[in-house]
Design a protein around this nucleic acid. Sequence first.
DNA 1: TATGAATGAGAGTTCATTCAT
DNA 2: AATGAATGAACTCTCATTCAT
Lengths: 216, 216, 216, 216
Amino acid sequence: MPESPSSPPAKRGRRKEARPGELLEAALDLFVEKGYAATRVEEVAARAGVSKGTLFLYFPSKEELFKAVVRENISGRFSEWQETLTHFAGNCSEMIEYAFFAWWERIGSTKVNGLGKLMVSEANNFPEIALFYRNEVVLPAQDLIRQILKRGMASGEFRDIDLEYAIYLVQAPLMQLDLMQSSKAICIVNPDNFDPQKYLKMHADNLLVGLRPRAA
Amino acid sequence: MPESPSSPPAKRGRRKEARPGELLEAALDLFVEKGYAATRVEEVAARAGVSKGTLFLYFPSKEELFKAVVRENISGRFSEWQETLTHFAGNCSEMIEYAFFAWWERIGSTKVNGLGKLMVSEANNFPEIALFYRNEVVLPAQDLIRQILKRGMASGEFRDIDLEYAIYLVQAPLMQLDLMQSSKAICIVNPDNFDPQKYLKMHADNLLVGLRPRAA
Amino acid sequence: MPESPSSPPAKRGRRKEARPGELLEAALDLFVEKGYAATRVEEVAARAGVSKGTLFLYFPSKEELFKAVVRENISGRFSEWQETLTHFAGNCSEMIEYAFFAWWERIGSTKVNGLGKLMVSEANNFPEIALFYRNEVVLPAQDLIRQILKRGMASGEFRDIDLEYAIYLVQAPLMQLDLMQSSKAICIVNPDNFDPQKYLKMHADNLLVGLRPRAA
Amino acid sequence: MPESPSSPPAKRGRRKEARPGELLEAALDLFVEKGYAATRVEEVAARAGVSKGTLFLYFPSKEELFKAVVRENISGRFSEWQETLTHFAGNCSEMIEYAFFAWWERIGSTKVNGLGKLMVSEANNFPEIALFYRNEVVLPAQDLIRQILKRGMASGEFRDIDLEYAIYLVQAPLMQLDLMQSSKAICIVNPDNFDPQKYLKMHADNLLVGLRPRAA
DNA sequence: TATGAATGAGAGTTCATTCAT
DNA sequence: AATGAATGAACTCTCATTCAT
C-alpha cells in the first residue's frame, strides 16, 4: 500500500512499517560514523525522529539493533551474490575481477563499507557481536572466494596452492581498501587523488597473474 | 637504554622520573589489548603501580595519555631500516621478501603490531595524532616500499606500473596480517591453525610473480 | 451470575460488559503470582485478550486496577461461614479443627490465598485498601474466631484467657501457612515434601491442648 | 578510634571507615520502609550523605548492598545465639520462652523486624536474594529451634512428634508477630493497645503446654 | 609528590500512560 | 469502544575527573 504522492506524510501516529527502516538507516549512519560503543541509542532514535523508547519497540537491545543493521546491509545479500556466482558466464579470473568491482559498487563505495572497520575496531570488546559478524559476513564471504578458487584450480585455470591461505590473497585488497576508505587520513598516499577503481584493477591484475599456473 | 652508571639509583623514595615511562608502558599494553574506550585509567595506574590520582599528575587527561603513548612508541626505527635497504645485497624481489619477514619479526609478531590497529580504530577520534602517525609511520614506510619498487622498475626486474598504486600491492599483505592478528576472532578462517610465515610466503610469492615483466 | 435469558448474547462485536470482569480476573492471577510492582499492565491486558489501551479505558491507572481487584475478590462469604458456625454440631475444639480444614479447602489451597500475602506486601502502599481489607476480611475473620473462643470459655471447654490475644493463637497457623505457601522458597524446610494437612493437624492439636483448662 | 567530642566532624574527605556503616544503616531504613525493588540506591546514598557513585565504591550492586544489610543485622549474629543456646542454664521450655523474648528484644522490636516482611513480599521477584535469605537466616533459625526441640524430646520434656513440623509450631508466633508489626494497620485487632510481650507470653505458654508429654 | 574517596554525567533498558486513528 | 505506536521518566551501574589531605 504505497502512499500516493499526494497523501501528506503522517506527522505522528502509525508509521509501523516505515519505522524499522528509518531506525536501521539512522543506526547504520551512526555506527559507521562513531563506532559501536560510542553510538548512543538515544541518538539513533533522535536521528530517526523517534524517542528512545520507540527504538526498543522494534529492537530489543542495542546489540540486536546492530545485528539487524548487519543483516539488512550485508548478510541478507549473500544469497543473491551466491546466485550471481553460480550463474556467472565467464572464467574464474573474470569472476574475481567482476567480484572486486561488484563489491566496490555495492559495499566499498557506500557507507556500509564502514561496518568492516567498525568490526575490526571493536571486535575485542564485543565478542558476541564479533562472532555474529564472523558467522554472518566473514565466513560466507570467504566461502564465496573459496568456491571460485576451487573451481579455478579444478579447471587448471589457477595453479594449485593451499586453498585456505589463497583466500587471503583475494581478500587482502578488499580489506585494505575498506580500511583505507575508513581511515583515509592515515593510509592513503595522496587522498585527494585516489581512484579506487584503478586500485582494484591493479590488484586484480597482479593477483590473477600470480594465480596462473607456472611453467616448470 | 640502561641507566648510565653515573646516575645513582634512587635508594629510597620514588624514582619519580621513571613514573611517566611506567605509565606509558602500562598504557600501551592496555590500549593495545582493549582499545581506547575500554581501557580504564585506573587500570593503567594500577599496572604502573601508582594510584589513579597520580596518573593525572603526569597526564592531564586520558586523551593526552593516549597521545603520549602513540608519540612515544612510534619512533625512528626508519633510519635503521633505510640503512638496511640501502646496503641490501640482493635483487629487489629478495628485498621485498626480506622486508616481509623482517616486518613480521620486528613488528607483526610483537605488541607494537597492535598500534596499527589502534590507529585505524581511533584515527577519526584523534585527527591530530592520526596526522602524526601518518607522517611518522605510514609515509616513511610507504617511502621505503617506493624506493624498492622504483629500483626494481628501473632495473627491469619489475614491470612498469603506476608506482603510487603499486605501493599498496606491497602494503596490503602486511596491513591485512596486522589487522587479522589484532582481530583474530573475526578474520581468520581457522584461528588455531594459522601460520603467519606461510601466509607471508604465499603473499610474497604471488606478489612477485605479478610484478615481473610480462611477455608481449 | 449467568446472563439472564432475555439478554441476547451479542452475536458479533465485543461483549463489552464482560471486559472489566475479564481484566479483573487476569489481574488477580498476575498480582497474586508476581506481586504488584512486577505485574505489567500489558500482560494483564494480554491475558484478558485486549490491548493495553483498552485496559486504561476501564481502569484509569494500575493503582485503580489493583484496588478494583482487591475489592472485587474479597466478598461476603462470611455470612455463609457465620451460618455454618452457628449451626455447627460439635464442641468448640471440633469447631476449630473443622475451621482449619475448611479454610484450607476454600482459601489456603486456592489462589485466593495469594491475596493475603498481597495485602501484607502492599498494605503500606495502599492504606486505603488495607483499611478496606481489614474491615471486610480481617476483622470478620477474627470475629468468627472470637465467637468460638468465647463460647468455649463460657462452657468451660477452654481455659479462661484474654480473648483478644487468644484470637492470635488461632490465627497464627493459618497466617503462617498462607505466607509459607506464597513464599515457599523461603520458609519451608523441605518444600518438596511438605504436607499442609499434616501441618494443620499438628497445629490444631497443639493449640487445643493448650487451650484446655488446667489443673490447679 | 572514637572522635573526641571536640574534634569537628570532617565535612568532606576521608570517612572510609565510617562509610559502610552509614550506608548500611540508611539502606536498612529504606529497604524496610519501601521494600527492595522500590528502594532506589540513589536515595540510600543521599540518606547516608554521599553520592550515588560512592555507594558503589563500597557495595558492588544493590543486591550485594541488601545482602550486606542482612549479614550485618541478622546472619552475623547466629553464632552468638548458638553460643547462648549451648550454654543456657535451664530446661527446654525455659529456653523457648527465653528465645521468644530475646528475639523480641533484638529483632522483633527493632526495625530489623521489617526485613522478614520484606523477604516474604519480594521473594518471588528476586529468587537469588530469597535463596540467600533462606540460607543465611531462615535455615539457621530453624536449626536453632530444631536443636531445642530435639533436646527436649530426648530428655522427655517434650512429647515425641515429627520434628520438622514441630519447628513451625515454634516459628509461627514469631513470624506472625513480625508481619503484624509490619502491617499493623491490617492485622491487629486493637493496634493502639497491643502488647507484644503479652502476646508472646501467651503464645509461649500455650505452645509449651501443647508440647508436654501426654498421659496415655 | 602522591593519594584515593568522592563525584555526577550518562549509559542501556523498562514500562505506565497517552492519544491519533 | 478499541487500538497499539509512541512517549519519557525512572531505574541500576560505570568511570573520567577532582580535590582535601
